[in-house]
Amino acid sequence: MARKPMMAANWKMNKTLREAEDYAAAVIPKAEDAGGVDVAVFVPFTCLNEFARMTADTPVIAGAQNFYFEDSGAYTGEVSAPMLLDVGARAVLIGHSERREIFFESDEMVAKKTKRALDAGLIPVVCCGETKEERDSGGMWDKIQAQIKAVMDAVDGDLDPEKIIFAYEPIWAIGTGDTASPEDAQDAIGQVRGLLEELRGEGFAGSVRILYGGSVKPENIAEIMSQRDVDGGLVGGAALDVESFGELVEAAK
């Protein structure tokens, strides 16, 4: 089964509401021209309602950057799956390295969030990846394998491969200008796909999409996308400018 490419923008903690409106207006025609490419934009909570409203009934998937796995309660500062759905979100980033590294989210927390997103009908984009120290010490695969296994153990029963997306993001390449070589990206993502085959079978592993994230930009996306197991990009800095993101979407075609 052919996997549909995806280009996903992660704004992180950037953009005001007015900037989000301008971006939405500019990205919609780019997504409409993209044809066989899914386009997702993960925006801050403050922009999500308006961005989702503007992109409703368009090819642009509005997504949140985080949420909590409980639906309500005494969790000051958190946002739940029903709240995301209420404002029009269709997808959510889970376990981004910045959430893991800065806010100490554990593999268990990421697994609980993934299960809740799936149950709620949100598409989880589940991130995994290693630090420079883990890569250099030979601990890279142990780290990634534990991250993936925790998620898959938490999701019981049949899982539609089109309802979940994984993203491999080497932490040492995020926002540093350093990019894993296309061969490095293929090697890591190929191993992730192999692990998913062990855990869920060939049909699931062959159909689920796995993105690459880490200093993706228009200059390197074509070579990265040419790798057999790479299905798209999760893009930070280069996606803040809508014209630059549009070039990435075009390259994904």
Rank of each mutant, 00 (worst) to 15 (best):
Ala205Trp: 03
Ala25Ile: 00
Leu17Pro: 08
Pro182Gly: 03
Leu85Glu: 10
Gly139Phe: 06
Ala20Asp: 01
Ala111Thr: 00
Arg53Cys: 00
Glu134Leu: 07
Lys115Phe: 04
Pro182Arg: 06
Cys47Trp: 10
Leu195Ser: 07
Ile28Met: 03
Asp57Val: 00
Gly214Phe: 08
Asn220Val: 01
Leu211Asn: 02
Ala20Val: 04
Lys163Gly: 03
Gly201Asp: 02
Ser97Arg: 08
Leu248Tyr: 11
Ala56Phe: 09
Asp229His: 05
Ile102Asp: 10
Glu70Cys: 10
Asp57Ser: 03
Ala24Ile: 00
Ser137Thr: 11
Glu108Cys: 04
Ile102Met: 15
Leu85Asp: 05
Thr179Ile: 13
Ala239Glu: 06
Asp107Leu: 08
Ile174Met: 04
Glu78Thr: 15
Ser226Thr: 02
Gly175Phe: 11
His96Asp: 05
Arg100Phe: 12
Ala62Gly: 07
Val151His: 14
Ala222Cys: 06
Ile165Phe: 10
Leu195Trp: 08
Glu202Phe: 01
Gly237Tyr: 06
Val235Ser: 02
Gly95Tyr: 15
Asp71Ser: 14
Glu98Trp: 15
Asp142Cys: 03
Ile165Asn: 02
Ile210Gly: 06
Glu98Phe: 13
Lys112Glu: 13
Glu130His: 04
Val192Asp: 00
Asn14Gly: 08
Ser106Gln: 07
Glu101Thr: 14
Asp107Asn: 15
Glu50Tyr: 09
Leu234Cys: 09
Ala251Gln: 11
Glu169Arg: 05
Met109Ala: 09
Ala205Phe: 08
Asp107His: 15
Leu48His: 10
Asp229Lys: 01
Asp33Leu: 10
Ala62Lys: 04
Asp153Lys: 15
Ser215Phe: 05
